[in-house]
Nucleic acid binder design. Structure first.
Length: 138
DNA sequence: GCCAACGTTGGC
DNA sequence: GCCAACGTTGGC
């Protein structure tokens, strides 16, 4: 199982909406690198749900329930989306400031490439971020 | 195929 | 609201 981080501006689509809806298509990705990350997702993979611009923190965890398929919001047919399901909120949201303050997370794509909206997260980073968020791991 | 101009994202 | 980073577009 692989781990990811996906970003959303809460003004456009928030974690509260994700939890209310349950399963939701993750649409609107229009960046080649982010799209290739979407294509690499497998069913059962988990992803952090991050609020960009407002909040700037990891607020929840979702699970991939459908792998990449043509994004219905894209009329050119060139871009893809996946379906994700809300798994659980993060009890103590992990802020960008807290992530930047942790030297072991300096290599995280969220820090290194701030404009990327879909990115992989290593298992080590995933575990660390879960613990920072108040989720017991193993 | 290069690169300047321009647009967008997202942190501050 | 500003601006740095970076992706895209279009002239040559």
């Amino acid at each position: 199982m692989a781990y990811w981080l996906v970003k959303s501006e809460p003004d456009a689509f928030s974690w509260d909406q994700q939890m209310a809806n349950g399963i939701e298509p993750w649409t609107g990705v229009r960046n080649a690198l982010a799209a290739s990350n979407l294509r690499a997702m497998a069913k059962g993979d988990r992803a952090f749900f991050y609020h960009s611009n407002i909040g700037k923190e990891i607020v929840g965890i979702v699970q991939v329930v459908r792998t990449a398929y043509p994004d219905p919001s894209d009329e050119t047919g060139r871009w893809v989306c996946v379906d994700v399901k809300a798994v659980r909120p993060v009890p103590k949201p992990v802020t960008l400031a807290a992530i930047k303050a942790e030297p072991a997370l300096a290599e995280l794509a969220l820090v290194r490439q701030s404009r990327l909206s879909v990115m992989p997260v290593s298992e080590e980073h995933w575990t660390m971020l879960c613990r920072m968020g108040g989720i017991r791991v193993r």
